[in-house]
Design a protein around this nucleic acid. Structure first.
Lengths: 255, 255
DNA sequence: CGGCAGTTTGACATTTTTCAACTCCTGTGG
DNA sequence: CCACAGGAGTTGAAAAATGTCAAACTGCCG
């Protein structure tokens, strides 16, 4: 059994990811935020004058759940995973953020603590804006609030999707399939035809454990399901690159 | 077993709720939104001039998931439950909204369809604002975007809490306890000392089925757990009024 | 009174978690 | 250069939890 993929060699996800992203990911990077780049001239100039950009290695913690929200982060390049933890150490992976995503918006608006922990998955360039600067910026330019509200609306929809995934799928297979499709679509943002049934290929930067905490499953269940998906021809994987062969069927087959 | 509560009579939640809310709930009602009432003079006057208030009976559908987001709703009084459905008919109850809450903000900002269905739990007064009017209102008054962003931030945090509940509790008991505590705190907004261990009492307007779809459990499991909570002295219930005797223990005891 | 919606309870089936062992790979330090 | 520790993934068997099915009960309302 499983001969076709064993033949291609056995490649578990490497524990340390390469620091350099493949071309296909870099292509999606934008120097400034996909939201904030739509500012008018003056606002855009002001935007570039606040905050500082910094490079981060893979597996660095950017924000920590429970700490005062004193900075806003904007991802210029790379991927960041957002997690929430329970007192007992159980983890929930809320989503994987990419270039253009803004971290800490909600906490900053509520003037409280961060609700999630952010950790880089790969090497990243992150722009950091102190809370006070951003508030000033927002007060100076009315349009900032509008863009901010739209970003928050997107965050909200994302959170709802996570909740839906966890509650609306009866089987573990459904939850995992939904998680994989989400991940694939994050990676394919720029070129995705969205709802075709064409194979989707993306860079899988998460461990089975991560996937488990994304779908509310145990590590072992994820492992078993992935071999099942491979056996059934829905998933093809080589190195870190994962391909979903029949996205539509995956959505429907697994309740 | 369970004699103490059988003695008080057996009162399942009535299928049709009374149209008149008890005093304790009415007390929390505010004629205008808890967010939007913080507007400055002119904005506030404009706000009162747009949209219309309407009365709704219990169990009316206000918004339907998947329909174009053409109206914004503001709850003046009463309770509304927000649900999302899967293709197979499974339901997720995202939260119970009350006076001051705004429905449809995210969908309106993204100019797409509603992501949730809203159904009144009791008799409600709801202010409805057509999308175009709200957009004009927002463009006329910069502060509206700011308040809107804050409302969205709250929505987001709520959705995250729902996801957390579903993923971070290993046991069904934990999920249900978390759901009950959430519901209690929605009702106690005005007078709650938040994190004391004093008993919290609130009007339980949800059926076991609703609770199930809030915690990701089956109706029967909810029933069994509630009798267990009663037996263990954590929950006391008479008619529709539910009391959580040891809020803090409930949070900690059930992982 | 009968029907209905909501709840309760039991027995059973199933899924998923847990525990445990083992492989493969990588990075580290002697 | 090798040994070793540790992370990641795989697989099996047993255990626990929850879902499912079925049946009965309660109170309400027409």
């Amino acid at each position: 059994m499983c001969v076709w993929w064993k033949r291609a060699g056995y490649f578990p996800l490497s524990p340390r990811r390469p620091a350099i992203l493949p071309r296909s990911v870099l292509k999606t990077s934008t120097p400034s935020s996909q939201y904030f780049c739509s500012f008018s001239g003056i606002a855009l100039r002001d935007f570039h004058s606040i905050g500082i950009s910094r490079h981060h290695e893979a597996h660095e913690i950017l924000l920590r759940e429970g700490f005062p929200a004193d900075h806003l982060l904007i991802i210029c390049s790379g991927r960041v995973k957002l997690t929430a933890a329970s007192a007992e150490g159980r983890l929930l992976l809320l989503r994987v953020a990419g270039p253009g995503d803004i971290l800490g918006l909600a906490a900053l608006h509520e003037h409280t603590v961060y609700r999630v922990t952010s950790e880089t998955l790969s090497a990243c360039t992150i722009k950091s804006i102190p809370r006070a600067d951003f508030v000033r910026f927002m007060e100076a330019h009315p349009e900032v609030s509008r863009i901010t509200a739209m970003a928050l609306a997107r965050e909200y929809n994302n959170a709802v999707l996570t909740a839906r995934r966890l509650a609306l799928h009866s089987s573990a297979a459904g939850k995992l399939a939904s998680a994989l499709l989400d991940l694939a679509r994050v990676d394919e943002l720029d070129c995705a035809p969205a709802h075709t049934n064409l194979p989707i290929s993306f860079l899988m930067q998460l461990t089975h454990e991560d996937l488990g905490s994304m779908a509310g499953l145990s590590r072992e269940t994820v492992s078993r399901l992935l071999t099942r998906f491979r056996r059934e021809g829905h998933v093809f994987q080589i190195h870190d690159r994962m391909t979903l062969n029949h996205p539509v069927q995956m959505e429907t087959r697994y309740g």
